[in-house]
Design a protein around this nucleic acid. Sequence first.
RNA 1: GGAGGGGUGGCCGAGCGGACGAAGGCGCGGCGCUGGAAACGCCGUGUGCCCGAUUUCCGGGCACCGAGGGUUCGAAUCCCUCCCCCUCCGCCA
Length: 427
Amino acid sequence: MLDIKLIRKHYEEVRRRIATRGEEYAKLVDRVYELDRRKRELQKEVENLRALLNRKSKEYGRLKREGKEDETLKEELAKIKETLKGLEEELKRVEEELNDLLLRIPNLPHPSVPIGEDENDNVEVRRWGEPPKFDFEPKPHWELGERLGILDFERGAKLSGSRFVVKRGLGARLVRALINFMLDLHGERGYVEIYVPHLVKPEILVGTGQLPKFEEDLFKCERDNLYLIPTAEVPLTNLHREEILKEEDLPIYYTAYTPCYRREAGSYGRDIKGLIRLHQFDKVELVKITKPEESYEELEKLVADAERVLQELELPYRVVELCTGDLGFSAAKTYDLEVWMPSYNRYREISSCSNCEDFQARRMKLRYKSKEGKNILCHTLNGSGLAVGRTLAAILENYQQEDGSVVIPKALRPYLGGLEVIKPQGE
RNA sequence: GGAGGGGUGGCCGAGCGGACGAAGGCGCGGCGCUGGAAACGCCGUGUGCCCGAUUUCCGGGCACCGAGGGUUCGAAUCCCUCCCCCUCCGCCA
């Protein structure tokens, strides 16, 4: 959520910067600006009336205790109350609309974010590693996985429909190995491992920005009014919601493995094959809570921590800075990590690392007390470290050999009892 | 699912129609005491919003005692609905 005071004071600038994400958002800013003005007008009237009412009520009480009932005063009070009632109702309506709209305005992009419309305007920051050269036609990971008997898309669909997969044998073990490997790596870097609920209340999703705008993307358990988390970012970032942290506790580093559940509404036909886009996937997430002045430095470190996973696995990747049009709703600045995928002959997103500044913190009232005793909104950051399914896909494709076998990255072998190669079944 | 108990400030905990933004304690900050410290004494210490003069400091108002409604001139206190937590029983990985 944006600071309403910022919109009030720097309306033109906020409007201009929000418009870089899409003109439709600028219109929301306009409406909010107008509603805020109306709200304050009404609030002033209401509060003045209430002050009057409070004063007269006390007076009435005092008189009554002295045994003097004052009927004219009582009538006067009733009159004030009636006027007040109408004004209060209008104020409430205005406030509700204002709050709802405020929750639907995305974060202000950081001034350093490149202006652009979509992913084509993202800016490459650096590359690491060399895409492998094959002297044979490399296969896509879903073919490799099926031939190796470790991925079973057909039975995934049998159980749950499209965009679900079953992993078998070494496929299942590879997932477990990757999760443990990633958690261990981040643990070394000072991230505290957390295990979180996978079902959360609506307000938790409002806190991180998925609600109210992206209801359609979520799985919901209607009976219990709970949602399946689309990412561990949601419970992790909300852990300290409505708390006032101590300055010396910051920065906080958390990591968690969770499955992630997404309806993928509006992505019909995209990435229908393979592990790239599923309704349920596994991810190890990184979350930081920091002081405002440290958050951008922490973002760079967060990206480095995510990159380290790819480096240890020796997977070629590049770092991309998202442009304004491609930025997520809550993010002020985002770096994507894109891993090389031979079957696509291009880099594909495997991690997204964002600084949300105080956008989420304001929604969830996440603050810390400064040495001067002031309560200051924290900054929150999150990043994938990494998406497990996509990592598995990248390993299969980049480490494949002509015979269809796949070499296990060295860093992962200790997690698989020293296994060096996965071979097609029956060999 | 059944029965009971409870949600009050950073924390603990009292209050159960007006003098309550809320006793007391802990914690924290300042001062005193001390050679220094502990102990002790004194003072201060919630959050959000609005308005005003204003860099900051400040002053005024409104709201907040789980959430939302109601009763009342007046609600932390009474009534209703909902949410959450705890204990016991049942069921269960």
